[in-house]
Simulated scan of single mutants.
Amino acid sequence: MVLTGTHLAWRKGGLHVRPAPLTVKYLPPISTSDWTADKIDDYIKMLHDLYAKHLPESQRPLEL
């Protein structure tokens, strides 16, 4: 699941959530049944990259 628009609703360092349009994009499920602890860093990178790929261009990390 990828959420966009949250930066408008909850500003960094702020204590209040403001009304703002949010978008929720549901991605296909990811099976973790064969995941192993020794590859956790690989899984984290895979999930980060997948999430970033589905963000609007203006909100993607610079290193992608």
Rank of each mutant, 00 (worst) to 15 (best):
A9H: 01
I44M: 10
L55T: 05
L22Q: 05
A9M: 12
R60W: 00
L22P: 07
S33D: 14
K53Y: 08
E63V: 15
L55S: 13
P21M: 07
W35K: 11
D41A: 08
T36R: 15
A52I: 04
H7D: 07
S33V: 13
R11V: 09
T36G: 08
I30Y: 01
P28Y: 02
P21N: 04
L62H: 07
L15E: 00
A37S: 12
L22S: 13
T4P: 04
G5M: 13
L3V: 13
D41I: 05
K53P: 06
D34W: 13
A37W: 11
K39L: 08
V2R: 00
K39R: 14
L27P: 01
L22E: 05
K53V: 04
A9V: 01
P28E: 04
Y51A: 11
Y26S: 07
A20K: 11
P61E: 11
L47F: 08
E63L: 11
L47K: 06
P29Q: 06
H48V: 12
V17L: 12
T23Q: 03
I44D: 06
K45M: 13
K25E: 11
R60C: 03
D34V: 09
K12G: 00
P61D: 08
W35H: 12
P56K: 12
Y26M: 06
M46L: 10
L3M: 15
Y51C: 07
G14F: 03
L55F: 03
G14D: 03
T36F: 03
K53L: 03
L62D: 10
Y26R: 14
E63R: 15
K45S: 05
V17R: 01
T32Q: 14
S31P: 12
M46Q: 13
S31N: 15
A52C: 09
Y26I: 09
L8K: 15
K39Y: 01
Q59N: 07
T36E: 12
L22T: 00
D42T: 15
L3T: 14
L64A: 07
K53R: 14
G5L: 13
K39P: 02
W35D: 06
Y43E: 09
V24L: 11
I44N: 05
G14Y: 05
M46P: 00
E63P: 05
Y51D: 01
S31H: 04
M46D: 08
P61M: 08
K53T: 09
A20Y: 08
I44P: 04
P29T: 06
D42H: 15
G5N: 10
L27Q: 01
